[in-house]
């Protein structure tokens, strides 16, 4: 196990190094840089600014400088936002995380429950109904359903706020603040759950159907075990195993923010910020954020491998 871990960690470092180089080059080679977009500047001023920001250096040298700073824990200043990149992360990522964590949790819980029931009652009216509903939800464009819900629930009925995270100008603290945030996040969470539910439910349903046909389930039933026990202890546990792989993928998604949802619901998350900084070629922020997601991706896969081992003793690492 420990040799495995050392090997994996080494691989991770190599992968991250390669990824950072590739990402850096991709960003640097995209046409236009941070200065280009400002068409008000004279050519001389543009050259001066490129000198100040070091944008006139060769790409590899810039990469080296960035790497050196990164090793010292310095991810630089965002050019457009004029703030340290790490401060921007802490300003925005937690808002994205809140939204993602709650909706992911709800998506998984609902998907497991619905998936198990519809697998158990395969081809029943419940199963058919659920599948139709799920396909319908999956095929809705997020901006459409988002705007539609805002129009109905916020503008017309005024039950929920139309966007943002808190009521503008509110000084609420403690429980009142919590209530405010919950009210504001209801709509975006509903949309995210609706969109994410489909694939996951189908995934659990098919896993469960597979497992229910296994010999050991028949054995369990033949032993005279209660159906509930067969279903939740024997079948569900095995059906959930492949889902561990998904957990690894969820990790970066939890922090990555959702561009469209954040935009529609005016949510102060990192997804919006990232998109904007791409348009502006705000290299330090782009690089910092993409590397952050890359690191989470690598950690996520390692985590899911280890979890797999913990959950299933048959797996050897």
């Amino acid at each position: 196990m420990s040799t495995y871990l050392t090997k994996r960690l080494l691989y991770m470092l190599v992968i991250l190094f390669a990824a950072s180089l590739l990402i850096f080059c991709l960003y640097a080679l995209t046409p236009g840089d941070f200065i280009t977009g400002n068409i008000k500047l004279t050519a001389e001023r543009k050259a001066e600014l490129r000198e100040i920001y070091g944008l006139n250096k060769p790409v590899l040298e810039r990469y080296g400088l960035w790497m050196k700073d990164a090793f010292h824990g310095n991810f630089g200043y965002s050019l457009a936002q004029q703030k340290p990149v790490l401060q921007l992360f802490s300003d925005y990522i937690w808002n994205s995380f809140l939204l993602a964590a709650v909706s992911t949790f709800l998506t998984w819980v609902i998907a497991v429950i619905v998936g198990v029931i519809s697998a158990y009652k395969q081809y029943s009216w419940f199963d058919t109904l659920v599948m139709v509903a799920i396909f319908a939800a999956m095929s809705l464009p997020s901006f459409f359903i988002g705007l539609f819900l805002i129009k109905i629930l916020a503008v017309d009925l005024k039950w929920l706020p139309p966007g943002g995270m808190i009521t503008t100008g509110s000084n609420a603290t403690g429980l009142a603040y919590l209530k405010e945030v919950v009210r504001h996040m209801t709509l975006p969470v509903v949309v995210m759950v609706l969109l994410g539910l489909g694939s996951l439910t189908r995934y659990f349903r098919s896993n469960m159907i597979d497992v229910l046909q296994q010999d050991y389930i028949r054995t369990a039933r033949a032993k005279g075990l209660k159906e509930r026990k067969v279903l939740f202890t024997h079948a569900l546990r095995n059906a959930l195993l492949p889902a561990i792989t998904l957990v690894g993928f969820e990790l970066p998604a939890l922090f990555g923010g959702s561009l469209i949802i954040e935009q529609i619901f005016n949510w102060p998350g990192i997804g919006q910020l990232y998109m904007k900084s791409f348009g502006l070629r705000d290299y330090p922020l782009l690089m910092g954020f993409t590397m952050f997601i890359a690191i989470l991706t690598v950690i996520g896969t390692l985590l899911s491998d280890i979890l797999y081992r913990v959950a299933d003793p048959r797996v050897r690492l």
């Binding site: 005024k158 706020p161 139309p162 966007g163 943002g164 503008t168 935009q263 005016n266 102060p268 919006q272």
Partner: peptide, 15 residues
């Protein structure tokens, strides 16, 4: 108030 994109909904709800 930071409001990206459409502001109709905020004007209509008095925000």
């Amino acid at each position: 108030k930071t409001s990206e994109g459409d502001v109709w909904q905020f004007l209509e709800t008095g925000e």
